[in-house]
């Protein structure tokens, strides 16, 4: 038997990482819009890992120099950790920059197809696309150490334990006790709200504006409340139940 103590261990783990879907080759536009996003939600974007998605861009026949793009993104303060939907040359550029190449998830391909339905395509296209995503419904308790990320609204019918973290780009509804961290509007949506039946959270945040548990001492327990943003301030308000 060897006497060297075990120094490392491999584990499989799942992370949610934002995907940046590009649909313009105009670097100035990209830089401007990224800077705006970071300003809106520095909590979420500053030093955030990021996967670049070039599928749309390549489909539209635009070109993109990956090394220039990566430099731009790093300047804005984010860390590209992967690329997908790139062509052979773009993938090679990425690998040269030590950025791994991922394949496109098929479920997402089909959902992005849906978005190009006739009614939608009539609208003028934004260069940085806002994805239309549906609600995520969860019926099991979210336990300490677990993390949930929803691209749209997040509806949870069970409790969220202390030590758990739930994030949504849209609204968060918890029809039970909220004891962990809840962050709504994490991509900067200031109209996002958090609703819960019993507020005992470690942290609540809407579009990067947050309050920690210490700030919530005065909150009445065991009563449904909603949390929303008004003039950059988080408002916590009882929800009147009419019988």
């Amino acid at each position: 038997m060897s006497n060297t103590p075990l120094g490392l261990e491999f584990k499989s783990s799942t992370f949610s990482v934002p995907v940046l879907i590009l649909s313009t080759e105009n670097l100035d536009v990209i830089q401007q819009q990224l800077q705006d996003k970071v300003k809106q939600a520095p909590e979420f974007f500053k030093s955030s890992p990021l996967v670049l998605d070039l599928q749309e861009l390549n489909k539209s026949g635009y070109s993109m120099d990956v090394s220039v793009l990566v430099r731009l993104i790093r300047r804005v303060g984010m860390f590209p950790v992967g690329i997908r939907g790139g062509n052979v040359q773009q993938n090679k550029q990425a690998v040269d920059l030590l950025i791994p190449v991922y394949s496109i998830d098929h479920r997402e391909v089909s959902s992005s197809k849906k978005e190009v339905a006739p009614a939608e395509s009539a609208k003028p296209k934004e260069p940085l696309k806002v994805k239309q995503v549906s609600t995520t419904l969860i019926t099991q308790p979210i336990r300490s150490g677990q993390r949930i990320y929803a691209e749209g609204d997040l509806v949870i019918l069970a409790q969220v334990s202390a030590g758990a973290e739930i994030l949504a780009e849209g609204n968060i509804h918890v029809y039970n006790s909220l004891r962990g961290r809840a962050l709504a509007g994490v991509q900067g949506d200031e109209s996002a709200r958090i609703f819960c039946f019993d507020l005992a959270a470690e942290l609540i945040s809407v579009a990067g504006n947050y309050k920690v548990s210490e700030d919530l001492n005065h909150v009445v327990r065991n009563k449904p409340v909603q949390i929303y943003l008004q003039d950059q301030a988080l408002i916590i308000k009882d929800i009147e139940l009419h019988h």
Binding site: Q140, P141, R143, S144, Q146, G163, A164
Partner: peptide
């Protein structure tokens, strides 16, 4: 708190969870 953590693992990292069987 540790039990809560373990419950999270039971519901996500077990064979039943990974194979989408009854929890």
């Amino acid at each position: 708190r540790d039990s809560d953590r373990m419950l999270g693992l039971l519901s996500s990292k077990s064979r039943r969870a990974e194979q989408n069987e009854e929890p």
